[in-house]
Simulated scan of single mutants.
Amino acid sequence: MDAPLKIETHGLTLAFGDRVIQRDVALRVRQGSIFALMGASGCGKSTVLKGLVGLLRPIAGTVLVDGESYWEVPEARRTLINRRYGVLFQSAALWSSLTVAENVALPLRLFTRQKPAAIADLVRLKLALVGMEAAANLMPAELSGGMRKRAGLARALALDPEVLFFDEPSAGLDPITSKRLDDLILELREGLGTTIVLVSHELPSLFSIADDGAFLDAEAHTVIATGAPTWLRDHCMHPTVQAFMHRERVPDERAADERGTGDADGR
């Protein structure tokens, strides 16, 4: 039996001014899944993520969170929905003037009424979850790229989110550090039951951790295939998807006609 839907979109269209980035985007993110937004650089993956987390209002369409229409509820209600989210941005977005522990504590101080001692305990717990307890008193400038990502993840976990959003979590990391981060993401899903939505074009990460996803196309400005990355790699015959999954040059128009360009949907 399929898990219940956590997030779904219908006809989601996002734009900057008159420039449409993605249109008619339909997503179905099930509870407890690791859902990947895939596609080449510049196709609009991060833009769609911003539409999901409330950083960019769509010009059309709906975003449903547990069946509730995110953009149609009052702002106060959206704020409460956002409390159920944790977001790790590509740069980790740590405050440079705060220690690692202070960065993790910030959401707890802003959005809860916990006493300082309780916040300190929670910070130690979140840092331990990501293997960063020894770095609590370091400044962001003293951290490696992988450590910054893990510190940002600890902060994203501060409020015990139901959904974690990752924007290119492996970007800029060496293969070993990237693999460790992938393993950590899997542990969070297995241990906490967290639903995870990630933006990535890193094939090793996509194949090893994502169990569902949507492929966004820069030319069509919409979703052209859905399914697990491994399923898309092995079964989707859309030439753009195949080129991406096998790191090939996108075929020319004649080759596309010969191979077929039908949409695909797989689990």
Rank of each mutant, 00 (worst) to 15 (best):
H10R: 15
G11E: 09
L14M: 14
L14Y: 15
D18E: 15
R19S: 14
D24P: 08
G32I: 14
G32A: 11
G32M: 12
L37Y: 03
G39S: 04
A40Y: 02
A40I: 13
C43Y: 02
G44A: 05
G44Q: 07
G44H: 04
T47C: 09
V48L: 13
L49R: 08
L49V: 13
G51D: 04
G54M: 14
R57A: 11
I59S: 01
A60R: 11
V63S: 06
L64S: 06
V65M: 01
S69H: 10
S69V: 15
E72A: 12
E72H: 10
E75C: 06
A76W: 02
A76Q: 10
R77S: 10
N82H: 02
N82M: 01
R84Q: 09
Q90A: 14
L94Q: 03
S97Q: 07
L98D: 07
T99Q: 03
A101M: 01
N103S: 08
A105W: 03
L106D: 12
L108E: 01
L110Q: 05
F111K: 04
F111T: 06
T112M: 03
K115F: 00
V123Y: 02
R124H: 13
L127F: 07
L127M: 09
L127K: 04
M132S: 02
M132G: 03
M132C: 07
A135R: 00
L138E: 01
M139E: 04
E142W: 00
M147N: 02
R148S: 06
R150D: 01
A151F: 01
A156F: 02
A156R: 06
A156D: 05
L159E: 08
P161L: 08
P161S: 09
E162I: 10
V163E: 05
F166C: 03
F166T: 04
P169T: 05
S170E: 02
A171S: 11
L173W: 01
R180C: 14
D183P: 11
L184M: 12
I185T: 14
E187I: 03
L192D: 12
T194K: 15
V199R: 09
V199T: 10
S200Q: 05
L203D: 10
S205P: 13
S208E: 14
G213Q: 06
G213N: 08
A214N: 10
E219W: 00
A220Q: 00
V223T: 05
V223Q: 00
A225S: 02
A225V: 07
G227F: 04
A228D: 09
R233N: 11
R233K: 15
H235R: 14
V241Q: 05
Q242M: 09
Q242A: 08
M245A: 12
R249W: 05
A256C: 14
A256Y: 01
R259G: 09
T261D: 07
A264E: 12
G266D: 12
R267P: 04
